[in-house]
Design a protein around this nucleic acid. Structure first.
Lengths: 235, 235
DNA sequence: GATCACAGTCAACGACCGTTTACATACATT
DNA sequence: AATGTATGTAAACGGTCGTTGACTGTGATC
């Protein structure tokens, strides 16, 4: 929504020349907006939580005055929402590219765990932000994150439904399975974010743990019976 | 440390009479301390995060002046630590009582999932606090929580080692398994904390999901081979 | 070249913050 | 009854906060 107020007339003088330094008016605006987002992300990189950030220090980090902030966002909450969108955008692209590959296979699952965790390690700041705000942010931010995660689980469930080995899973159980798999990588992500950025040994340990957990789940699926456990659990 | 400065001489005039209203000097202090903790917990009950609470509003909630706060805690961080201790104390008691029961059985696992989630639902505020601060709190608070969770997983691993069906699990894999089980209940906890307090239907759904995930994991264990996956995963 | 739109500045406001100091009051010890 | 001792109060401090209104300069439009 309201994505960059397209003017009725657009300037196209710099269309062919991409090296326009100190470029046009709204490119400058975009640059400042980015500076604000980057400044917030940088402050978040320590152990600060988003709700503890002040508007003033974000603008200080971005090199503008507090009043200038309102030319870009209505308040910190809107900036937080933009951060979430940024964070998930790259993840969605990653998943889309992965989905375009070959048919899913058991080996592929383990490979995509590694791919995902590599992505997290490469976008530490974004995922650190998400991990922190998933439970402690304002309700609008929390709900936005939750929506994205649910979407992610849904996509994964669709992918899983193409496994021949999972044909006996009904829709609800597929969702449950996808939820568990996401749980595993989210858990690994959160542990990963607690390690120092360069610690290769810790990284190996985390990958191996997630991989094992994934294998345990896959083993369980081979014995699963979806016809069981529908509503016969009455205490 | 420095837990309640025991005076050399202790007063014992009110020893036999437990109904001493407006009781002694340090009972009054304890009452105020409790009021501070309760006020913080109450403020936390909404969507506020601990780091966003101010000392002044906590004291206001407890009915004392800001300066009085320092008679009980050196600052908000110390109060946060006390909250963590309170939160886990009741959980530890629950687990200890559960451990004193009969030998573990497959059915018991499902039962204890329900027991645990009941406990969470009954102590919503405490677990909401922990869920929020697990990733976004100050590092000292985060580390304190992590220590408790790791302890919990360790205890569970010991319990699991008594299962005949899990005899083929080595120590590392037992730890992994316990970690997964804790993951399942923690995940369920976090979903539970997002439902309205009285929503029995949502509660049922959450219980059933956690139960299913637990069953899937248990199925996986019956096919597990601990001799596999030691270090043969080299990419 | 005149005009307009707008990103960013500057100064100020009222509010709340954590912390300190000196003081009052009630209880426990003697 | 006299004397600490410690919980809580009252007032003030310097600082940061979000938000505002009037402004300035510059790039886009006419």
């Amino acid at each position: 929504m309201h994505a960059m107020k397209r003017r009725t007339h657009s300037r196209r003088h710099a269309d062919g020349d991409s090296s326009s330094r100190e470029g046009g008016r709204d490119e400058r605006k975009l640059r400042t907006r980015r500076a604000l987002l980057d400044a917030a992300l940088l402050l978040l990189e320590g152990e600060r939580s988003f709700s503890s950030l002040s508007l003033r220090e974000v603008t200080k980090g971005a090199g503008i005055t507090p009043a200038g902030f309102y030319r870009h966002f209505s308040g910190m909450e809107e900036l937080g929402h933009a951060l979430i969108e940024d964070s998930f955008r790259s993840l969605h692209e990653l998943m889309r590219r992965a989905r375009e590959g070959a048919l899913p296979s058991a080996h592929m699952i383990r490979a995509s765990v590694a791919t995902f965790l590599d992505h997290v390690a490469a976008h530490r700041a974004h995922f650190g932000f998400i991990a922190k705000e998933r439970f402690s942010g304002s309700s609008v931010i929390r709900i936005a994150i939750r929506k994205e995660v649910r979407l992610w689980i849904g996509d994964l469930a669709v992918d899983l439904s193409r496994f021949p080995a999972l044909a006996k899973f009904n829709a609800e159980d597929l969702q449950m399975l996808a939820g568990m798999m996401v749980n595993v990588v989210v858990g690994a992500t959160e542990v990963l974010l607690d390690t120092l950025p360069g610690d290769a040994e810790a990284l190996q340990r985390i990958y191996r743990l997630a991989e094992k957990q994934m294998r345990l789940v896959m083993l369980g699926t081979s014995l699963w019976d979806s016809s069981r456990g529908g509503a016969d659990h009455a205490a």
